[in-house]
Design a binder for these strands. Structure first.
Lengths: 148, 148
DNA sequence: CCGAATCGCTTGCGCATGCAAGTTGTTTGC
DNA sequence: GCAAACAACTTGCATGCGCAAGCGATTCGG
């Protein structure tokens, strides 16, 4: 029982490392964005009003708040996100997706899907993929920020 | 079809980030080893003679060769691995698990399994776990270095 | 054989990230 | 109301990592 959990956890982490290694290469060269930057944009995309506070973004991305601060700066500079204050709480500094950002994330999703296709190749049936999708969904169902 | 691949890839990466975030906390405080260091030791553990060359280790861990060099140094210092030369090829510098290292990785595996158990809690049946295990195995089957 | 290409490993450098401390703004307890 | 606790964000510092360059060792082509 516990051994099965261990096996699954190990395989999950190894699969993720493998996939991340494959993606990191082909990605930044295409869109000028890193994988993590695209993930940040995707989180904004699926959020109401296309915006999130920095701490909320940090929670959903499983990174520290300082990382969000530093990731957002260059993204503002290239105009894919903007900073937005809250009239009720002056501490809040929302990160909001711009129109340009929306277009960029749509493009990035395309190449992401293409690469994802290579990962599963042709040996996977739709049924396999649905099964895996359902199982993985149960792992992230309770946490906020599912990008699918 | 491609959307299913995309969905699975996103969920896989998100699940892995989530699990890694949970593990990183409870781990180094217990064994004085980081998650990645334990992974390195596990790769050695399942290798013939409990040893691997640095480049082979790099491939299996999906990191660069320089990372292996720098990870091995402190592990040598605390005595869980040792450096071993090859009589045939003087370029090779194997990383070999010591007796102490064997014990340490066994301990680490225990707490790893414990944490893995928390990840899946009690809502997962053995059948679910086997299904997920099989599916994930297909993702890493072609690459060397499966730790399970 | 000998030079050139290749390989395994290490090192310098830059970038990304977490942690802790600091700043500013808000909420709570009295 | 006011002080103390708390929250959101930023910044300094240390660490970990990839890339490219460098160095010794091996292999290959002639």
């Amino acid at each position: 029982m516990e051994d099965l959990c261990l096996k699954n956890t190990l395989r999950l982490l190894q699969s993720a490392d493998q996939i991340k290694a494959r993606l990191s290469g082909d990605f930044s060269s295409v869109h000028g964005l890193s994988v993590n930057e695209v993930f940040l944009l995707m989180h904004l995309e699926q959020a109401p009003l296309h915006r999130l506070s920095r701490v909320e973004l940090a929670k959903r991305m499983h990174v520290s708040a300082s990382t969000v601060t530093r990731m957002a700066a260059p993204l503002e500079k290239i105009g894919v996100v903007a900073r937005q204050a809250d009239s009720r709480d002056a501490r809040l500094a929302f990160v909001v997706l711009t129109q340009t950002g929306l277009e960029r994330v749509a493009e990035a999703r395309m190449t992401f899907a293409k690469q994802a296709g290579y990962v599963f190749r042709d040996r996977w049936t739709d049924e396999d993929l649905c099964q895996l999708s359902d199982l993985l969904h149960r792992l992230i169902a309770d946490a906020p920020g599912d990008l699918t």
